[in-house]
Write a protein that binds this DNA or RNA. Structure first.
Lengths: 254, 254
DNA sequence: AGAATTATTATGTCAGACATATTTTCTGCG
DNA sequence: CGCAGAAAATATGTCTGACATAATAATTCT
């Protein structure tokens, strides 16, 4: 359900919003910058002013911009950007998938997920646990297929958050989703890496079933360690590869 | 700056969005419900279809609704709502300031803020600490004035998050802001309560200056304890008061 | 009965106009 | 010359009405 819905908003307004977001995220339009007037933006993106305004309305909702009559529309301070928003996270992933971004996202996951896991072990219902176990089985069944592994992996982590019954922890699922998507993108250089996390997930699941909060917390913590390690090494590999590609291109250009 | 900007969007479209959000949050329009068509919504709220669409666009951005051509606009599953969004948090506060909501928000604060505080103690710069100290002084200077106390209190907590340098933790400031606003609203029944947190803030500040992460974590943890306690007792007091008022009204009606 | 076709309908997009709130410019006075 | 107050300019905010598009519902034909 969630998967299907996230595919919505493929209308042109969504594309325009994403493009404006990209310009802001990449720093073309810095904090405090007043952006071109609506009519100009509309013509630049090839849409009507009404559609343009709908796109801007979307970005306003995410805290990226604010506008006042006559004064114009400006980029808000970074502090006001709602980085925990799923779309904004994905846009950032597309625009600036930097190592810094990866470290930050893993830092919050490390803070939130082990605790959520402990709460889950105490407060979750058997149905909650069954859902998590189904996700685990899905991961197992995926074998070495990276694509098939990704979805149940997300469901596993989301399942834990849902089991806490805390709406804010559940909303944190968007951040986890972005992190997993990042991992997935990076795993192309090392297709076997995702599967290695399976036994760690198994331990988490066992501790949850045992309703052992401390064990669950610790197990999730270890899973976070492994995940971060994978991401960091994959990123440096990617970086190296990019540098080589760049080199090759430069040589060819001569 | 942030304060001024948050006062934006007082245009009618903002009001409409808030009202629709209220109807969804209070369960008048439940998850999965297809809401009336745009033209009907527009006339119901007394705005044009264009304005109505801008409002809906805002709610789409926050994950509350999704729409497909011909099929209509429907309320998305709760899991997809971005509860960590500042506006959505405020709307919830206005629509359903329940004890459950208070507990949940304090549960995440308890998870995030002590860790953020520990990171702050290690990674923060002296300028960061100075900013936090300025906020502390502001709280002290406010004395028993609840209104004057609120703003520097928020700046104190935000300052710690900012000092972590982690964009996601910084974005969590929206949640803290909502929690403090809730505390503030509740403190009317016990005007002296906020000030009691001052020495706890002092301890946090000292541990940060000492660059002692464990002490900082523990100090923040104690502050969270106190805050939660205040909120819970204030809410039960409020609940009692509301019940009495209700009683009085019923008696009068006879 | 079932498949293919047509009609319907709600969102998506467009165009042009006017309203409103600020900012900027202009004007007159001390 | 400086400055307060009035007038003009302008970018966002709102409205109206129309057409495009895609998904659903109804209809027709085999």
């Amino acid at each position: 359900m969630t998967k299907a819905e996230s595919k919505d908003n493929q209308q042109s307004s969504g594309h325009v919003a994403r493009e404006v977001a990209r310009l802001i995220l990449t720093g073309v339009w810095r904090e405090g910058t007043t952006l071109p007037r609506e009519i100009e933006l509309a013509s630049r993106f090839g849409v009507s002013r009404a559609s343009m305004r709908e796109s801007l309305s979307l970005l306003k909702a995410k805290g990226l911009i604010a506008s006042r009559q006559k004064a114009g529309t400006h980029v808000r301070a970074r502090f006001d950007w709602n980085m925990l928003d799923e779309e904004l996270l994905n846009w950032t992933l597309l625009a600036l998938p930097t190592q810094e971004f990866a470290k930050q996202i893993m830092e919050v996951r490390r803070i939130v997920e082990p605790e959520a896991c402990a709460i889950c072990a105490v407060r979750g219902t058997d149905e909650d646990f069954a859902r998590i176990e189904r996700a685990y089985r899905g991961m197992d069944a995926a074998g070495m297929d990276r694509v098939a592994y990704a979805e149940p992996d997300l469901q596993f982590h989301r399942g834990i958050l849902i089991a806490t019954g805390n709406d804010f922890l559940i909303a944190f699922g968007a951040t986890v989703a972005a992190a997993l998507r990042m991992s997935f993108n990076l795993s192309s250089t090392n297709p076997g890496a995702p599967r290695k996390s399976l036994p760690y997930h198994r331990t988490v699941l066992d501790e949850i079933w045992a309703r052992n909060p401390d064990g669950a917390r610790q197990a999730m913590h270890k899973l976070m360690d492994l995940t971060e390690q994978n991401i960091v090494s994959a990123m440096s590999r990617q970086k190296k590869k990019d540098a080589e590609d760049e080199n090759a291109r430069t040589r060819r250009a001569r």
